[in-house]
Amino acid sequence: MAASLEAESTLTDRYQTTVPETVRRALKLGRRDKIHYTIRPGGEVVLTRADIPDDDPVLGQFLGFLAADLTRHPERLKSVDAGLVQRLQSLVGGVDVDLDTPLSADDE
């Protein structure tokens, strides 16, 4: 079992605190990252790194709009035609894409 790490910080008059370096390292936190607090019934608080939000707030709003629309109007949902799937596969079949390769300056 891994050894436990402990750290303390102090609240300012405005109820702010600095996250100790050991906690930042353990959670791999950087500037502007968000922290998630889980408060358990016995008063124990678990601090974790919050999920990283979408980089594009407009895309996030659009996806939220789509999700809400699908919830309100499920009858509008249609399956993709098998012919379209075959056509798409013929256009991109055999194309290898490495999602970890950095974009060129022209593609940024």
Rank of each mutant, 00 (worst) to 15 (best):
I39L: 11
P53N: 14
L63C: 02
L63H: 05
V58F: 11
R32F: 13
L27F: 02
L103N: 07
R31W: 08
G94K: 09
H73G: 14
V95F: 14
G83T: 06
D69P: 05
G93D: 12
L91S: 04
Q61T: 06
V97S: 09
I39T: 10
D100E: 04
D107E: 05
Q89E: 13
P20H: 06
D81Y: 02
D33E: 01
V19S: 00
T18G: 02
L63K: 04
D98C: 00
V97T: 06
S90P: 00
R24E: 01
D96I: 13
V19T: 00
A50L: 07
K34T: 11
I35F: 06
S90V: 03
T48V: 08
R49H: 12
A26C: 01
Y37F: 15
G60N: 10
T38N: 11
V80F: 08
G94E: 01
L63D: 03
S79H: 08
A105E: 06
P102L: 00
V23M: 02
V80H: 08
L84M: 09
E21L: 09
D107G: 04
R32M: 12
I35N: 15
A26N: 09
D54K: 14
A67D: 09
F62Q: 11
A67R: 10
L88Y: 07
P57H: 01
L66Q: 05
L77S: 13
D56V: 05
K78G: 03
E75R: 02
R40M: 06
D69W: 12
Q61W: 05
I52T: 11
D107W: 06
V58S: 08
K28A: 12
D81S: 02
G60T: 10
V92H: 14
L70P: 04
D33C: 03
D54S: 15
L47H: 03
T38W: 09
R72H: 12
V97F: 11
L77V: 13
E21M: 06
R31N: 15
P74L: 00
L84I: 12
D33W: 04
D51I: 15
S104K: 11
L88H: 02
T48H: 04
R25G: 12
H73N: 10
Q61S: 09
E21Q: 03
R72A: 15
K34N: 08
D107L: 09
L47R: 00
V92I: 14
L91M: 10
V23C: 00
S79R: 12
T101S: 14
T71C: 10
S104W: 06
